[in-house]
Design a protein around this nucleic acid. Structure first.
Lengths: 321, 321
DNA sequence: GCAGCAATTGTTATCGATATCAAGATATCG
DNA sequence: CGATATCTTGATATCGATAACAATTGCTGC
């Protein structure tokens, strides 16, 4: 069942069918209605390949996700999927499809034929970003604003996140805060610097405990190392919830009260955070919304509109830690 | 840069270029090499739409994921992404692309044009499965073998998982096991019945505590309800790791030793399980491999080969609970 | 030396949609 | 009434690849 078939059925030409199905004002409303009715009736399905060939675009956006099961959090958390959900929802609504690939598969012809590229979880690898830049496609990256910013970056406001936590600690009267995480990751670096700057306004200088893994064990380990060195501290900001949870367990193991002796705040507000015992305070980001924004930027770029990088607000959810 | 351009450069016809690039034995090896060289040199990229149009297939497999953030575990866990990783890896290697959609977006033209359909996380909704069946496309579903089985189902061996846990409990000499979970979910039902059947062989009959949510809180709640009713039990099999973790916390809160008083086993062996305190015993499934299998079945179906449903082995990882 | 075959290359048609330009029908206006 | 504008429709070409069939060349065997 092609347009030609439909045209024959309706007693018009192919092009009229094409116009009618596209709701073109060029065709008589009656004809249009009749054709659309016929199309529905016979279950006509547009041939996407043919249209794409003629229009010289694919109506497809490739999403490149880092999926290697490394210690990187991309794999551990459910967030990329939520981001994907937002992206998918918005692009689908606009008539675009989402082509999912890994970095390895990105050389496939279908990816190169995409109308645009969305990069997720490539945070640490600026080289990868540059590689895709060369394809000359509209491109949007999820992450932290880099220094150069040749491309559009969408991410949540990590500096704000850090600052919110700092404010929280100051309000609680804490003067000896610790930051746990891996600042070589651009997003984490932003969290740290927001944290540091906001504390500095109150004359407080945090201690940085560098931990590269985003795991529970890494969190426990950080606390143990602090304890071993007998470093005094009364607040701990972990750059992710798992680290925070690990830290809390370690603190409890050492007989220190949370949040009495040490206030702890995590990051991401993963679903687990609320039902953790004690319920974990954390910085919340709206991943679904992030996905939607990524998609909207992409669509704007495809339409040729100018688009600027953007940061999404985050909020501090104070629970019992 | 099209095949016609390349043909002009090489001084041959389009079709020869087409054949050369497809490594066809019909063209002289020398010509073939020269053309491939030229293509590389000029950065020629195949136009996928044109090829798809001509060949009447899309070289695309649509993956339909349930992404609505409900209480369903699909959203909570990182697994769908790992499954996706396996699928993507295998399909990409075979020259296929992965089109990601939600159930809502599945009516899009691009999805209908796919060469096949993979359904993830539709477990509870047989109606959804049937709806896609009507498209008449090759289809593979991730989940539990349903009774009717009109379509190909790949899933891990949930019955075996349940049986493994039963065996473990028996070996520990436990006689009063409890199962926590939601058996209206087909996969969970399988876990339960494998558990029940294996226990029956030793004359043990477990107690079923039905809990619909797959959360920590739900796990704690289950234990509290048991305690309130003063039900004696010495082993607990939770149908997912979060439930297990919640249960363990509740048991500890009630002053009962794990695994001394109550042995606990979870399901899924999520990354968190190993670093949980105490390290959680759990049934491990290989999600990456699951994705690979899904993809392979799909490719077989596309090639027109017969394909049967398949179950992947699981293993019990005994840690400290 | 010529039929017959293999190896290699080319010609033409086709997949299904849409843009361009042309044209018939109808309406409007002076 | 004729001319021009507006509405509606269509014929043809085109996007870039590949299939079917045709044609050319060189070689083998009798």
């Amino acid at each position: 069942m092609t347009m030609a078939d439909l045209a024959r059925l309706a007693g018009v030409s192919k092009i009229t069918v094409s116009r009618a199905l596209a709701d073109s004002p060029l065709v008589n409303p009656q004809t249009r209605g009749r054709i659309q009715e016929l199309a529905r009736e016979h279950g006509y399905k547009l041939n996407v390949s043919a249209r794409n060939l003629r229009l010289r675009r694919s109506h497809t956006v490739a999403v490149i996700v880092e999926m290697k099961p490394t210690s990187d959090r991309t794999m551990l958390d459910p967030y990329p999927l939520t981001l994907l959900g937002g992206i998918s929802q918005e692009l689908t609504a606009a008539g675009y499809s989402v082509l999912l690939t890994t970095r390895q598969g990105a050389s496939a012809a279908a990816v190169q034929a995409a109308d645009g590229l969305i990069l997720l979880g490539q945070g640490a690898r600026q080289d990868a970003v540059r590689r895709f830049d060369k394809l000359g496609l509209p491109m949007v990256v999820w992450g932290a604003q880099g220094g150069s910013d040749a491309h559009v970056v969408i991410g949540s406001d990590n500096r704000l996140g850090g600052a919110l936590v700092a404010g929280h600690f100051i309000r609680l009267g804490r003067r000896l805060p610790v930051f746990v995480g891996n600042p070589s990751h651009p997003e984490i670096y932003e969290r740290l610097s927001g944290f540091v700057d906001a504390l500095a306004e109150h004359g407080v200088k945090p201690l940085l405990i560098r931990r590269d893994e985003f795991t529970l064990a890494s969190g426990t380990d950080a606390v143990h190392s602090l304890a071993a060195r007998k470093v005094p501290f009364d607040a701990l900001f972990a750059c992710n919830d798992l680290l925070a949870m690990g830290a809390i367990r370690a603190l409890q193991g050492l007989g220190r009260e949370v949040p009495g002796d040490v206030a702890v705040v995590g990051y991401d507000d993963m679903p687990l955070a609320a039902s953790f015992l004690p319920p974990l305070s954390s910085v919340h980001q709206d991943w679904q919304e992030g996905g939607v924004r990524l998609a909207r930027k992409m669509l704007a770029l495809i339409r040729g509109e100018p688009a600027r990088s953007e940061m999404l607000p985050v909020s501090l959810v104070v629970r019992s830690t």
